[in-house]
Design a binder for these strands. Structure first.
Lengths: 116, 116
DNA sequence: ACATGAGTTGCGCAGTTCTTCAAGTCGTGT
DNA sequence: ACACGACTTGAAGAACTGCGCAACTCATGT
């Protein structure tokens, strides 16, 4: 493949991970990877202001991780890249490994974090 | 879901992705997932200030993604969680999908962004 | 035409993160 | 004991994000 990309790949990767680096956005992607949701449905399940939700959706749209379409009065979002689900799962497994390891160390110091 | 958690999992995930959301840190992880590196070796391959590199290493250390040990005069870093490699690969494949898709659309609209 | 529910956008402030410079620590060789 | 290379830490300003409020758009129902 010809292809030295001029926006170096590692920078694109960083951008990509940045868009995943926010609790609300993670939550949204998790919900959408179960099934499509209208904005007001997301709103019921994620406790944030409508405008805030809208902004987070805009971030996800900008990186094309989600797409939307109108249907009657509502706007329906869906994940555009199904593999995102795998990525989230991979992250969870790494994460639980890390937490378990730290838990071992910290269980004496701060028992607070343990239960996941 | 049994599981009300003190640090909700999706928040921990977001934190995790945040630590991946920086070009230098991605670069470091990529290099370390090939083989262990001393700091000055990383410095040769990543064009940033020593102190900056050190800070980014500190971020990765804080989340336990890397570990280090001294050996003579140098400090050697290694990835502590080998699965990180898979995660980076997964990200790359999603990313190249996205870039390919966007490239198709944008090549006619804004040739500006392309090479870069 | 108007009101209403569903979403989005613009803006300003508060809080974070990045980056650089200067100063500090820790080993090794002399 | 001293100097030097290899790193790390601290601090401060710039740059960026996140959040809520108010204003706006758009489609539907009356």
């Amino acid at each position: 493949m010809g292809c030295a990309v001029s926006v170096p790949l590692y920078q694109a990767k960083a951008e990509f991970f940045k868009t995943l680096g926010h609790p609300a956005r993670i939550r949204i992607l998790e919900l959408l990877s179960e099934r499509d949701h209208a904005v007001h449905e997301l709103l019921e399940k994620i406790a944030i202001e409508p405008s805030n939700l809208s902004q987070q959706l805009a971030v996800l749209r900008r990186t094309s991780l989600v797409v939307f379409h109108r249907q009657g009065g509502e706007v329906i979002y869906s994940v555009s890249v199904p593999e995102v689900r795998d990525l989230l799962l991979a992250a969870r497994s790494i994460l639980s490994g890390l937490i378990a390891a730290q838990g071992d160390l910290e269980s004496e110091l701060s028992p607070t974090l343990r239960a996941q």
